[in-house]
Every structure is written in C-alpha cells, then in structure tokens.
Design a protein around this nucleic acid. Structure first.
Lengths: 221, 221
DNA sequence: TTTAACTCTACCCATTTGGGTAGTTTTCTT
DNA sequence: AAGAAAACTACCCAAATGGGTAGAGTTAAA
C-alpha cells in the first residue's frame, strides 16, 4: 500500500486526486491539504511514502514547502504537479528535493503509474519537462570523461587473457555487476562467474576491486 | 510519418525494432545499421526524424557516434537504448546530445510512445534513469544555476570525501577487502561498511568496482 | 583425428557486500 | 556550552560474490 499525501489548493482537483488514489487498489491517500503550512504540521505523523504537491500555491511557495518538508522527512519522495513548464521552477523544485515533475494534464492512469514508479525509486517526468532538464546537460560541453586511449601495452603477458575474458573484464571496469554483464553479452551469469574465476587466476587477484585496479593501472582494458 | 533510423548490433533486436516501427501506423524505419560507421555514411541522405541508438556498440563507441552524427545533423533527435543504467554513460550520452534514454526492456508500446514524444520535443526517459539525472540536482548543492553557471561538472564534489573516507577508499583501491581494511586501521568492519555507504552516496556508485574505477580515473586516490 | 584451448551452463557452499536502521563518542566550531 | 560534522559500532536482511565440482559444445591446430 503506497501512502500518499496531497497538497493542492484547487478543491476540485484535490478531491479528484484523493478519490483517484483511494479508489485504486494498492494506493491510499492518508492526507490532503490546500496549503503547505497545514501539511507540514501533520506530515511527520502521517509518514507517507509519496507527497504529491502542487507548485503554484498561495501562501508558502511550493519550493519553500519542498525544502521545509525535506527538513522533516529527508527521504520522502516528492512528486511535483504543475501547470507551468517554467524553467526556473523546475530546477528549483528539483534542487529542493523533488523526485519527479508532472504536468497537471497527466491522465489518471499515468499519474498512478508515476506515483508507483517514484515510490520504487524512479523519477517520472512529463517528457517535455524532462527535455528541459536534459538540455541543461547537452548545452554545456562537460569536459571530464578522460576517454583515455590506452597506451597499447606492448608488454609481455598482455595476451594471457582471452578476447572473451577481456570483454567481460571491461564490463566490470565500467562498473557493471555480473548480472548486468551477463545480460549485455546475452550469456548466463554462471558463465560470467566462470570467466571471472579464470580471470582472477590469471591476474593473481581475488576480488572485483583488485581486478579493476589492476586492469586500469596496467592498461589491460 | 515519423522517420526512424536504428543503430543496434544485435540482429534479433534490430530486426525486431524495425518490424515494430514499420508495422505501426505513422512510423517508418528508413534505415537500420549494426554499426555507427555505416549509419554515418547515410544519415544525411535519409533525413530521419529520430535516431534510435544502442549505446553498447562494437567498433565506434556509442557516445562517439552521437557526437559525430550531431556534427552532421545538429538538430536530429537521438534516443539512446541501453542495457546498463550506468551513470557515466548516461551523462556522457546526454552531454553528447541525446534527447532521451531508455532501457532495452522498455515494452514496445512504450517505445513507440517514446519515439513520438521525442519527435514532439519531449525527452522520454525510463524512470530509474531519470532518477539518476534528478539526483544530481537534488543531492548535492548544485548551486544556483541554470543558464549562466559553468558546466558544474556534475560531480566535481569528490573533494567532499572526508580524510577518513579517502583513507578507506584507498584501502579498497589497493585491493583489500572490508575486513582487511578494518584490521589495518584498527577499526571494526562495521565502521568500514559505514564509511563505504557514505562514500558510495557521495560518488554516486553502488559497488566496489565502480568506486575503484572512479577513484583511479578521477585521481581521487 | 585427436588434442588443446576456449566458451558456455549448472549445481553447491560459505562469505562478502549493499543498504537499512539506530545509536554513541569524539572533535571542532560557534 | 551548544551544535554540527565526523568517526565509530552494532544488528538486520537480501543479494552478490568467490570458489568448488562437473560437464557440454566449438574451433583451430597438431
């Protein structure tokens, strides 16, 4: 059961949301308020999983509301509902701690799905809002990412690892789990584990960390 | 009619995508390639609306591919398909010019919807990927921003690691297990684990391998 | 054609790790 | 003296990992 609290000043919308949530299996609206101030007084007691919050509120600004509620419950998942797709508000809300950002015209089914996704660690966003966030990254040329061309180790035993083993070791160095590596290569995790046992023997290591350190430092990958 | 080009090395997936797109009203697959290099030769002639691109490709790196194709068609909408939900890749792709980022397990209906949304100026993202993007805004003090601020290389806050955390991370990079680190520092393994939880949060990683790779590559240790 | 090297899959088991909660103590700053 | 930040410890659980055995099929070279 996902416990939801709503903050929304429009009576019609608020009641509609409440009915939608309470009327759906697995969801429960444990509180609904028309102002942040009221919500803040009860939020700790209610211990909701997700807070649905209108951003264009009278009285306390929605952004302020997010900051305040985050002080009380830092890990609360907050979904922002908005009419405007206004840049500054989006970024301020996200910085303040919102996990997702939806336009109000989002259909009920999508909204429920978004609540569930947010509760499970996702960040549902209306796609036009997501674009604004994305653009923030693409505009600037973030330099990092060394993208090092490896110094062709002309060394001796570079060939001790088979092509497949190199491929698998690379997956690890890129930060993937055995499971992720298995999926990316379309083989079973057992095979991945088998290869790693052999890789460890050849590199004389006994853990992921050692293998990664050695692989990077010796330019194996 | 949305004109789509596909780059995907796995034959089964590529053909499946092509059939899905061609078989759907309003969508047309005008090209499908197993390598970026091949796609780049034809892309200008094909004038697609959306480019669906696998990021884990042989030969030319998917990120490189995005950069190259953006040189040819700066306004092309690019959707990245991936198996990994790997932080660096996500941000590299977005910085390179991708508009959306989907995991491969996205069901066909969602994929078609994503293509349409992207074509209409949105940025469809799998919600767990979106969360990773969002986290860079909320978690750290990404000071004031949008437009004017410098690239804020999105996790330049490696220096937020405390001296003790650096010491412990070094132990890992040197190939030690949690237990070995604990013994060498005369603290309990629980303390080591505690520090690693904090280190992981700060570095935005979730495993030893990721932490080691990041530590070495970014010169943290 | 036999061998060797490589790749793949499946079990088993014990240990380690990732992530969470819930504290106490120390140290430094205000 | 109070508070914040850092360091430390413990306990829980689920998942991932390290290492073992045992076997399959493939390919290329001897």
């Amino acid at each position: 059961m996902i416990r939801v609290v709503i903050v929304e000043d429009n009576d019609t919308i608020r009641e509609g949301l409440k009915m939608l949530i309470d009327g759906t299996e697995g969801y429960s609206c444990v509180g609904s308020y028309l102002k942040c101030e009221l919500m803040l007084k009860s939020i700790e007691r209610l211990k909701p999983d997700v807070l649905l919050m209108d951003i264009g509120l009278p009285g306390m600004n929605g952004i302020e509301g997010i900051k305040e509620v985050k002080k009380l419950l830092p890990d609360l998942t907050i979904l922002v509902l908005t009419i405007y797709e206004e840049n500054d508000l989006i970024f301020e809300a996200l910085c303040a701690g919102a996990s997702g950002y939806l336009v109000k015209k989002t259909p009920p089914s999508k909204l429920l799905e978004a609540i569930r996704e947010a509760n499970e660690g996702g960040s549902p966003m209306s796609s036009h809002i997501a674009r604004k966030v994305i653009d923030f990254f693409s505009k600037k040329d973030v330099k990092r990412f060394p993208q090092q061309t490896k110094p062709t180790s002309y060394e001796k035993n570079e060939n001790i690892l088979t092509p497949r083993e190199l491929e698998i070791l690379s997956g690890l160095v890129e930060g993937n789990s055995f499971k992720a590596i298995a999926e990316s290569l379309y083989i079973s995790i057992e095979t991945v584990r088998f290869h790693f046992r052999n890789i460890y023997k050849k590199l004389h290591v006994h853990s992921q960390s050692e293998a990664v350190a050695k692989a990077i430092r010796e330019g194996i990958v």
